[in-house]
Amino acid sequence: MEVNMKVNLSGVELDNPIIPASGTFGFGEEFKDLYDLNILGSISFKGTTREPRFGNPTPRIAECPSGLLNSVGLQNPGIDAVINEEIPKLSKYFHKPLIANISGFSIEDYAFACEKIDKVEQVGIIEVNISCPNVKHGGMSFGTSPESAAEVTKAVKEVTTKPVYIKLSPNVTDIAAIARACEAAGADGFSLINTLLGMRIDIKKRKPVLANVVGGLSGPAVFPVALRMVYQVYKAVSVPIIGMGGISSASDVIEMMMAGASAVQIGSANLVDPFICKKIIEELPIKMQELGISSLSELKPDF
């Protein structure tokens, strides 16, 4: 049986649905000598903000059962350096459309960075991370209310003609309501989930492990939560979804697509096995054969 791994995200065709997730793959530099990056469907690069950021104080990584907490806090060189230095470097060894992950702390920040990234030809999709705290409105994350999520979506849509995918936070009571509000404001698709807020305490020191006290949980521990949320959003909207959260194997990819995802991102798994995306891409057709799946784009929940 011939298998077809191609998928389509708002007109951007990917050879396969495997995309390294933002924040776990940098700008590809650390992986380019390990394997040919062009085997990937796309790459979602490190969350980029208007200004350069160091992020939070260290320690900013904590181990968890089947996962990790991170409180990196969006370390990045800022939108100008990303456009003028990082993307040109990445372009030398990755020739497919990129997913630009953009973060901000005010509506203006998002619009500013998205307007700039809109001019970069290689960017196929803008992925707007709305999990950051809104500094102008008491620090609540943009992604935790339908109104502020829709406001960001609208502001970004006004400055770009590229497809805009809103990256949803799982730290909410009703993710479907937030997705619906973003879709109504013009979102072309969704990426989910971002990390789940958690914490760890060092019982010998009687202090939090993370200097920031709390951080985001990712890795296999969150997979069932991610799957449930992708399914809920799939039922609520009619635009494509990039599913992520704990994916570590071809079986996980297929399961996530059966929950309604059109493509997937691999995050934490890259950190513990730098070859994981390559392995999954090689494993996927074999798994498809085994399960009698001829085309990935046909996988949809019928339940």
Binding site: G23, T24, F25, G26, E29, E30, F31, K46, G55, T58, P59, R60, I61, A62, L68, N70, V72, Q75, V209, N270, L271, V272, P274
Partner: peptide, 12 residues
């Protein structure tokens, strides 16, 4: 330092 990846990918 506490590490996530150990090879430069996570900024941890």
């Amino acid at each position: 330092e506490r590490m996530g990846c150990g090879f430069g990918a996570c900024m941890g």
